[in-house]
Simulated scan of single mutants.
Amino acid sequence: MAERYSSFRPGGRRWLWQRITAAFLVVVLAFHFFLLHFIYHADEVTFALSSARMESWAYYSLMILFLVTATFHGVNGVYNALINQGLKGTKRTIIKWTLIVASVILIVQGVRTANAWAGITILPF
């Protein structure tokens, strides 16, 4: 009989956060799908309309939280899948730090994009 193996420790926080972020993503994706496919149709979605939505702090905050949550969920899932495949030692460390750096870059660029859409200027670049 096959033995179940997972890189998540029973009762561990990474396992719990993977489930919490999954539940949050299901709700936010349903909201996104409903808003952009039933309220507004594809031919009605414009940059100006998206910018107007991003000017609302509630919508802006939700999109930033969505960005961070999706990034964590995806990177955590990929990292643990690689560990389940037997990634160990130096390769594991290199992959871990590569994923962390890629996540930071993705989040920083996503926030910069959201700020541009919302008309928020924080940094001069």
Rank of each mutant, 00 (worst) to 15 (best):
F72P: 00
V101R: 09
L16H: 10
H73A: 04
T90M: 09
A116E: 14
S6D: 12
T46A: 06
V78N: 02
L49Y: 07
V101K: 06
T93Q: 12
V111D: 03
H73R: 08
Y60I: 07
V78H: 03
L25K: 03
S6C: 08
R9S: 07
A52H: 05
S51G: 13
K91Q: 04
G119P: 02
Y79Q: 12
K88A: 01
A2C: 06
T93A: 08
V28T: 15
I64A: 11
N76M: 10
R4M: 07
F24E: 03
I20C: 06
V26E: 04
S61W: 11
R19K: 12
H37S: 11
A81M: 08
V111F: 10
I64G: 03
L82S: 01
R14S: 08
A58I: 13
L106C: 10
F66E: 03
A70R: 09
G89W: 04
L82I: 10
E44I: 04
S103C: 05
A30E: 07
Q18M: 14
A102E: 03
W97A: 05
A114L: 15
G12S: 15
T113G: 06
I94N: 02
L25S: 02
W97T: 04
M54A: 10
F34M: 13
A30R: 10
Y60E: 01
T98W: 03
